[in-house]
Design a protein around this nucleic acid. Sequence first.
DNA 1: TCCAGCTAGTAAAACGTTACACTAGAGCCG
DNA 2: CGGCTCTAGTGTAACGTTTTACTAGCTGGA
Lengths: 327, 327
Amino acid sequence: MVTVKDIAAAVGVSIATVSNVLNERPNVGAATRRKVLEVARRLGYRPNRAAQAMRTGRTRTLGLVLPDLTNPFFPELAQAVENKARSLGLVVCLIDSQGSVHSESDGFSLLLQHAVDGIIWCPLGPRLPVSLKKLAGPTVLIDRPRPGYAAVHSDYEMGGRLLAEYALRMGHRRVGLLSGPQQLESARQRRDGFAKAFPGDIQIAWEVSVPFDGNLTAEAVEALERRRKATLIVAGNDLIAISAMRCLSSLGVAVPDEISVTGFDNIRWTDLVTPRLTTIAQPVGAIGARAVELLLEQIAGKNVGSARTVFDVELIERDSVKPHRAK
Amino acid sequence: MVTVKDIAAAVGVSIATVSNVLNERPNVGAATRRKVLEVARRLGYRPNRAAQAMRTGRTRTLGLVLPDLTNPFFPELAQAVENKARSLGLVVCLIDSQGSVHSESDGFSLLLQHAVDGIIWCPLGPRLPVSLKKLAGPTVLIDRPRPGYAAVHSDYEMGGRLLAEYALRMGHRRVGLLSGPQQLESARQRRDGFAKAFPGDIQIAWEVSVPFDGNLTAEAVEALERRRKATLIVAGNDLIAISAMRCLSSLGVAVPDEISVTGFDNIRWTDLVTPRLTTIAQPVGAIGARAVELLLEQIAGKNVGSARTVFDVELIERDSVKPHRAK
DNA sequence: TCCAGCTAGTAAAACGTTACACTAGAGCCG
DNA sequence: CGGCTCTAGTGTAACGTTTTACTAGCTGGA
């Protein structure tokens, strides 16, 4: 392993000068600077991050804590975050909490031990590991905002509204709601954005709350069986929507001919499933990138408080919704 | 931040003794040991990983380099690896090379700079970043073996054979192959395992090689249009199979009534798509866990050489294959 | 009684950086 | 020429661990 000392010896200057060159500090002549850089390159010098970290307290490492890589929304997010981070020379440590709060705080504690510079976190539920809250440094929430934290996410309410407008346009008046977990703001706002858009015109025939991972509860299955004259099912996310479509098809109900379905997230599957799912697209790449930027600002000492960055969403019209003719 | 020095001061011993206790080394009395541990706990001591790393040269960090998180096979793998690693107190740094060789070597170099203890790598293509090859420490390949490296993967040939047996059993005699990139051993063995199982009984009507990400080439689409009397399409993985089914359905060809399709990997979508895809299941969890174990052995100094661990696979029969009656 | 051998513990030197406090020399002005 | 201010550079002390070499004190056997 080649160190600053080796470079210093080879060039014939002190290690301080080498360090100054490498960190682009002043007080070093152009000729020396050139020579140091040349030798560093020739020797294949790579700064020892551990030593740097010890000295500076910065590890150039980010933590990324996600609830469930199995939900295809999160790999996309991870990809975006990793990419942006890497372009800035940061490495990202992934924690997949796999739906368990215990695993989540466990992962958190591991990240803290490794002294990550900051954490991008998509929290599982409303409960926090209090002991860790104190210790955690800069943190930015992603996709699931929560009071007291900086957060980056998309405009769920707008998504709900777009769906409502679309539903109205397509003639649907009675809908069933397969909402996500209502303790999550991200799920609640989708639901409320939809429900409150046209309270007079659209009525909610029934409503069941299910987890985001697409496992339908017995109650949800029952709702899908009875349907109660709903002509459209508005699901909390794509996974729920796709599971619902599967469930309906196994019940012998045709989508979209007998009943329409919408999702939320625009994961890749929406385009591969039959019928292709009409849904709301979030700008995942921008969200991930912005989260990294915000985190970096926070690390740099800027007090971002609980600043929120909210991105617009977009309706993606595919084949899972059919116009409904009023009787 | 509380350090060994603080503990030492609080207990009234030297930092060496504290270190000895913390690292479970001998030469420290039971009473002292107890006191040190108690104080450490009370003060909420967390070892500074950076300092440890500098001293020991070990970072307790693993790199995980994957080609494409967008392919749902890889998140599952990442989950398995991360989980196993975490259970051993290791943190994993994720690199998603996004299909670009440049990005892959870039990520590699970042990992090396951060001095990860080892790397679990699913290589993109057959070309290696030579400059990095020298520098890389312990490395275990996952899913895509390559000569000269330790590797963990499943028995692709067995998978191919199982599919061939199944095809035969279902009466299919003429098949079309939508194989993965043939420069990858993992794709080649699937293909060969199938092709060589019953060379006399099953004939290959046509064969096109396409990328694993499910983007069908023009040539592939053309093959799907003409079909040439093939009654079964054997795809290199599930993503290809699902894309093929989409393509067929847009051509108005019914799966499995007019033509059957098989996949490989058993990703979660296979169960959500219509018709549900018959495929080969790999033990992803076991593969990930084993890779971590193998890497750890290698890090511990055991020379594992290019040892391979190969896992059995399993046929998952669903709805995308229909028995074919010979004319 | 003496010494070997053990136990419990300590002092201090690394590890590779960064950053602070210096200094030698040059240039400039009055 | 004295004294001031720059520039270019140096020496060295940290950072928080681990680890090596060492010591004081005790025990027990001959």
